[in-house]
Nucleic acid binder design. Structure first.
Length: 698
DNA sequence: CTTAGGG
DNA sequence: CCCTAAG
């Protein structure tokens, strides 16, 4: 009887299971080709724009004739920026002259970019990017930039205590921070971090001079630049005359290292220099977006050099597994976009300790997706918004009162992943949900002083040094999720910056470029290559993952249409919030959200049945490849589960069935096939025999 | 990573 | 659908 049954099946086309795993490896990964995170693109774009802006400012003598059209735009933007800055400066000229006396002219001495390529940014990025972030981003950047710069300058100017040359202010992503410990010289440093859009201005007090305000205004440059701009920037000397008021140094450096801002001057790390981070949470790292930000640092030398260096953040502490692991992970995730995502743990926060310039903002790796970035950044332009970065300024008034101004808080970084097919509305909704989730959680304020979190609430400002003139500028505030309910991250202590959430992101890193003058040339040379090293990542990032699943080949057009509808449905809502804590509290919101439910259509069921009839019930991966290779959202586990439910459905009475009715014919086939393969499984020993019989009968 | 099952 | 133990 049994034998007969088997034979029948054999004749009907059932095929004996091929060697279980033979040749599997070859086909393997069919599902794993995936790709990228577009999110990075945005960041890059942003950076590029920002950089371009800064450079423009720096280099921009109106005379420069060969500015590309894009260059012009930027130039214009920079002009406005400069204007703003000038105004601000003028207001506070007295302060500067009196106390700072330093050179007003800032020169972009070093520009390190982590962004894949500023060089080609305008065009190549445009191609690669599939999302529309670039536009908005740049716009935002511009305004933000100007705004920030202006603010920063103002703040600096306002600082009566500026003599120390330190100012640390953050505005919506712009931060003017006290000089990092560069050479121990006092400097004012401007850091531009694309991701966060932070600006820090470091000026050397020693060099300072007077009256003119910081001079971003003048150098037009396009970071975007290509070698050219870089080149021009990298000239060792810039005519002092060109720079108003002798502003000597302004270095743009990517924040390679969170730990040492000093790294700015000399990125020593190399590509492979990713430092293993202490965080273990990294394993979850998937998106790499690295934060690429630019940092402006003072020149080592007294201001004559104007060089631009591009590099990636070598020092970012985010651990990044080698590209392989990270990507692998990423890829797999992308394959199944809706796979549940786990929350990162706070512990994974990058440790920024030691960096004077650090602030919570640095923590955030640029791992957000571009879309988010765009979404979150827009608000900044228009006005204070939750999405903005935090900004604060501190002043000490004469009367021992410490006055602080907090313009806004930055919402902990979070990431959103949303299919390309999602509507803008859904994107908005998603962002809103994420923000709401974060804010709805209990938050507490954290106080950072020179990058260090002040934990003792009982200390007085005086005791903590907040009232000290030289420290006000290093004061920072953060919004932190209240950890009370969350499992205490072990490493919490080590990571002052809770806001930035955690996870070390895989950052694409570029070889740190030497910032010294001498290195400038080499730098340029490599600039072209820069985009690539991480390139792998980069290119990968470009790809978007949309899940829309093409209907299985077997499906008829009609069916496919139907399917497409179902498949394309709402894939959004997959928000990944990095800030762990908030997520926990906000329960449902985004992070580990369950994949959206996508009922199998009849055509899918048919395809599944057909595949199972052919391959059996123990080879789901093959079934997937065979019938659902194009349906990215259907994992082999899904198929297996569906089969399980189909079998169950087939066994119950039609009245008990729910959902889209499956043709009885299919259910019958399900039962038949299931019975057949079950037997195959139970009596493998007959397999050969049956096959032999089949052959013979044939 | 795949399977197989339980939840 | 998710999660996990086993391979």
């Amino acid at each position: 009887m049994v034998l007969q049954k088997r034979l029948d099946y054999g004749f009907n086309g059932y095929q004996v299971p091929p060697t279980p795993r033979g040749a599997r490896s070859a086909r393997r990964r069919g599902i794993n080709r995936r790709i990228t995170d577009d999110s990075q693109m945005c960041a890059f774009d942003l950076l590029a724009t920002l950089a371009g802006k800064l450079l423009l400012e720096g280099e921009s003598s109106p005379s420069s004739t060969d500015m590309g059209s894009s260059g012009k735009d930027q130039y214009e933007a920079s002009k406005s920026l400069a204007k703003e800055g000038m105004l601000e400066e003028n207001k506070h000229v007295s302060n500067f002259s009196n106390q700072d006396c330093s050179d007003r002219s800032f020169i972009v001495s070093e520009l390190v970019l982590q962004a894949p390529s500023l060089n080609n940014c305008p065009k190549e990025l445009a191609h690669t990017q599939n999302d529309a972030c670039s536009g908005p981003t740049s716009a935002i950047t511009t305004s933000e930039c100007s705004e920030k710069v202006g603010s920063a300058e103002r703040l600096i100017s306002d600082q009566s205590n500026f003599q120390h040359g330190k100012a640390d202010i953050e505005l919506f992503g712009c931060r003017v921070s006290p000089g990092c410990k560069l050479d121990g010289e006092k400097k004012r440093q401007i850091k531009v971090e694309p991701n966060d859009l932070k600006l820090s201005i470091c000026a050397r007090d020693d060099i300072c001079n007077s009256e003119s305000p910081i001079a971003w205004d003048r150098k037009p440059s396009c970071l975007v630049s290509s070698d050219e701009s870089v080149k021009s920037l990298s000239r060792d000397h810039i005519p002092s005359g060109s720079l108003p008021h002798n502003r000597e140094n302004v270095n743009l450096v990517t924040r390679d290292d969170d730990e040492n801002s000093s790294g700015c001057t000399q990125p020593s790390t190399v590509n492979n220099a990713f430092r293993p981070s202490s965080h273990i949470g990294d394993r979850r790292i998937r998106k790499l977006l690295a934060s690429k930000y630019w940092k402006v640092t003072p020149n080592l030398k007294a201001g004559e050099h104007f060089k631009t260096v591009m590099s990636s953040d070598a020092d970012m502490k985010y651990v990044h597994h080698d590209g392989k692991n990270g990507f692998k992970r990423q890829r797999s995730q992308r394959d199944f976009p809706f796979k549940k995502r786990k929350l990162y743990h706070c512990s994974s926060l990058s440790n920024l300790d030691g960096d004077i310039c650090t602030d919570e903002m640095y923590n955030s790796p640029g791992k957000f997706s571009n879309r988010d970035a765009c979404a979150s950044m827009l608000p900044k332009v228009t006005g204070p918004s939750i999405s903005g970065a935090s900004e604060h300024a501190a002043f000490k008034s004469k009367d021992s009162q410490v006055k602080l101004k907090i313009k806004s808080f930055r919402v902990p970084e979070f990431f959103i992943e949303i299919p390309e097919t999602a509507t803008v509305g859904s994107l908005k909704k998603t962002v809103m949900e994420a923000v709401t989730a974060i804010l709805s959680g209990e938050l507490r304020v954290g106080v950072l002083l020179q990058g260090k979190k002040i934990r003792d609430d009982n200390k007085t400002l005086l005791q903590t040094g907040i009232s000290h003139d030289n420290k006000l500028d290093a004061l920072g505030f953060t919004l932190e999720p209240n950890l009370s309910q969350a499992p205490p991250p072990v490493s919490l202590e080590d990571h002052p910056f809770l806001l930035s959430c955690d996870s070390p992101q895989p950052l694409s890193r570029y070889p740190p470029t030497p910032s010294t003058t001498a290195n400038a040339a080499p730098l340029r040379g490599t600039s072209d290559a820069l985009p690539d090293p991480p390139g792998t990542n980069f290119s990968n990032l470009v790809e978007s993952d949309h899940d829309s699943a093409p209907s299985p080949p077997e499906m008829s057009l009609e069916k496919s249409t139907v399917d497409s509808r179902a498949l394309v449905a709402v894939q959004a809502m997959n928000v990944e919030a990095l800030s762990v804590v908030p997520m926990r509290k906000s329960k449902r919101s985004e992070a580990a959200q369950r994949r959206i439910r996508r009922p199998f259509s009849v055509s899918e069921v048919e395809a599944l049945v057909q595949a199972v009839e052919k391959l059996g019930t123990g080879r789901w991966r093959d079934v997937k490849l065979r019938a659902f290779d194009n349906a990215k959202h259907r994992t082999y586990v899904d198929l297996k589960d569906k089969w399980k439910t189909l079998v169950h459905t087939a066994r119950i009475s039609p009245q008990q069935r729910r959902g889209e009715p499956v043709p009885q014919e299919l259910l019958d086939r399900v039962l038949t096939a299931h019975a057949y393969w079950s037997q195959q499984q139970v009596k493998p020993q007959f397999k050969q025999q049956s096959e032999a019989c089949r052959l013979l009968s044939t």
